[in-house]
């Protein structure tokens, strides 16, 4: 018995090392100077240039035209994450409410129209989506960045599932007390869904924050660049330089992964709840 325990821990520790080492190394290396990294390789110990590198990355105007700062990209990523999460919750709660709590003829059709979106990921229809956005004149706008990503069913399913589990008696009681559809929604369903909303907000924020392909196509104006988009351009600047700015690239990577990682660690329970219940 004792022996198996030992091997269990050994395997787990190997797993943790395999998963965590790259993250730790990325952070440690970002605190060294580029020349040092170039000559010595990746680092496992902290260097003395933390403040310096991160100040540069956040405040220096980089990119092709020299207009976008790291801070601006952080802000854009936040706008995308929060806007996406909020929009997703509002749209999908309303839609799920209509589907579950109303008797109407098109209910099934509406459900299937929404369900179909699960079949085709954005990556598959990327080119025509881009053309539609050009026609609508939404390139380089926050609307164009956020709204098209909302065209999927995940959130709707999640709330539909949850609303179905809400006891029928609540609606009966509410109706006896004379509550209409609006009152029932705001005074009963929304308070009941609070934890669910929090869980889905976290997941959707991370999803929005991590978007890569869509922002890459939608933003040509640097003032709309997100961190993920910035990673692409820092690599393009690299090609041809003598000593690439390894430290700044790592710092950008750390900035890009820090908020999602923190959120998952802090809100771990909600996160797992939202994840395992929404996808099933």
């Amino acid at each position: 018995m004792h022996k198996t325990r030992f091997f269990d821990h050994l395997i787990l520790i190997c797993g943790v090392l395999f998963l965590m080492t790259p993250v730790v190394v990325a952070f440690m290396t970002s605190t060294h100077t580029a020349a040092e990294i170039h000559s010595k390789g990746l680092m496992l110990s902290p260097g003395g240039h933390f403040a310096e590198t991160y100040t540069t990355v956040l405040t220096r105007q980089g990119g092709f035209t020299g207009q976008v700062t790291g801070a601006r990209m952080v802000m854009n990523s936040f706008i995308l994450g929060v806007g996406f999460a909020a929009g997703k919750i509002i749209l999908s709660m309303l839609a799920a409410y209509a589907i579950v709590y109303f008797r109407f003829r098109m209910a099934n059709l509406a459900f299937w129209i929404i369900f179909t979106t699960l079949l085709l990921p954005l990556e598959v229809r990327i080119m025509p989506s881009y053309q539609v956005m050009t026609q609508l004149g939404l390139i380089n706008t926050y609307t164009g960045l956020i709204v098209p990503l909302l065209a999927s069913a995940t959130g709707t399913f999640y709330f539909r599932q949850f609303f179905k589990s809400v006891p029928d008696e609540l609606l009966e009681a509410a109706r006896i007390d004379g509550a209409g559809p609006f009152k029932f929604f705001i005074d009963v369903l929304v308070p009941l869904s609070r934890t669910m909303m929090a869980a889905i907000f976290i997941i959707m924020f991370v999803y929005g924050w991590n978007q890569y392909l869509w922002p890459m196509l939608m933003t040509t104006d640097e003032s709309f660049f997100t961190l993920m988009r910035g990673i692409k351009s820092i690599l393009q600047v690299w090609i041809g330089s003598q000593i690439p700015d390894y430290n700044e690239a790592f710092a950008l990577a750390v900035l890009a992964m820090l908020p999602p990682v923190l959120i998952v660690v802090i809100f771990q329970r909600w996160f797992i709840k939202g994840l395992t219940e929404s996808d099933k």
Binding site: F102, L171, P181
Partner: peptide, 27 residues
């Protein structure tokens, strides 16, 4: 489905409209 439901001639469509609009235009 629920045993008790609201029935309203237009409300469910109002609630579904934003989601459906986004899906139709962008999907």
């Amino acid at each position: 489905m629920k045993r008790v439901q609201f029935s309203s001639p237009y409300l469910p469509y109002v609630f579904l409209a934003p989601q459906l609009a986004v899906i139709v235009i962008f999907f």
